[in-house]
Design a protein around this nucleic acid. Sequence first.
DNA 1: GTCTATATGGAGATAGAC
DNA 2: GTCTATCTCCATATAGAC
Lengths: 223, 223
Amino acid sequence: MTTKTQKSEETRALILSTALALFREQGFEKTTMREIAAEAGVALGATYYYFASKDALVLAFYAQSQMELEPLLAEVLARKHKNLQARLHALITTKLEYFRPNRSLLSALAAHTNPGHSLSPFSEDSRAIRERDIQSFQQALDADKVKYPADLAPHLPAVLWIYQMGIILYWVYDQSPVQRRTFKLLEKSLPIVTRLIQISTLPLMKPLRKLTVELLETIYGPD
Amino acid sequence: MTTKTQKSEETRALILSTALALFREQGFEKTTMREIAAEAGVALGATYYYFASKDALVLAFYAQSQMELEPLLAEVLARKHKNLQARLHALITTKLEYFRPNRSLLSALAAHTNPGHSLSPFSEDSRAIRERDIQSFQQALDADKVKYPADLAPHLPAVLWIYQMGIILYWVYDQSPVQRRTFKLLEKSLPIVTRLIQISTLPLMKPLRKLTVELLETIYGPD
DNA sequence: GTCTATATGGAGATAGAC
DNA sequence: GTCTATCTCCATATAGAC
């Protein structure tokens, strides 16, 4: 790494951290690229030299968060947990705790459902992050002695990830004090999710499970 | 209605129809307020006099659509259908058919998850439209001789509405030819939805249903 | 390769004409 | 009340300095 590259790396980091600080203080929408540049002491163009757009700053934050979160989540999963429900609870609350200071910034991410928009959690640009995130659910499932039905099992990590995204979406816009409602929602919904997974193994549920697997293959499979 | 008010009404209608035509031709994002004004032969300010923002044009479209759709949906529901699944299928496909010419415009609506954003299907601004829309699901349920569990029944219209919103969201971004995937998704998911409602009446399912009702009350109930 | 100065074109706001 | 002309501020683009 030459001096030049290092200086560059520093400028980039400075711009990113300045931007994140401003986003935290004033929210994403209210913060302008001009402000970020001024606060970081560079010209507006410099900001665009390092980040192609305002959105790219959020994507950089998302990527950085995922990197920082992974060891945290691994550690949490390494602890003794009673069952899948407990592991999922730990996983999700750890994530919410981590994102709390930047909750408003997350709304810039959660706000986009369009898979064609780079900030969407379903976009091509965020694919790598998404796949790593889904892996953490794979781990939570793997820690179980229980065997899940062979047809359903491969889809479960993605299904749980979607469930998590729903919780995060609710949390982002939750106006109740310290987002109490979200945690209530989590307490109420998590048992349902794990219970549904449990009963999906019952012979009685075979037809419904088959339909569900077909549905999942329609969504995730090739055209 | 004075001449003045009538002239005003005409200008408003002209601006709205011009905007919708341009949105259809070029998409929402690519169309500028300046273009709309020029095409309609008025000054930019006139557009803002009638519509507070570009988003307001979409909201007006949404409101107009709901008004036009209601008699269509009532007619469709009045037909003989085998069961709930058939009625829901008719309801949703009718809606998709109606919106097809403006599919890209719908993405401007579906794109917002933020309940604080007026264009969000969950916003205060779209509440009236949403409530009328939910009513159509109430009707689809009421046409059934079957009795749904008393604790779950009051929530079913809103639940089905959310399901519909998921389908529409998928449809809006569906890149497959004539949105084939969405219809496949509908065929696969509708039986699951109705089957789940069916089995929710089983005594075996009582605990799970109770959890679900509590969850729904957390979401829709007061703080 | 890094970065500055300056330009472009758009959303929305507003003073005031009629 | 309706509408025009004009203004402000912003995201993003780019020519070219170093």
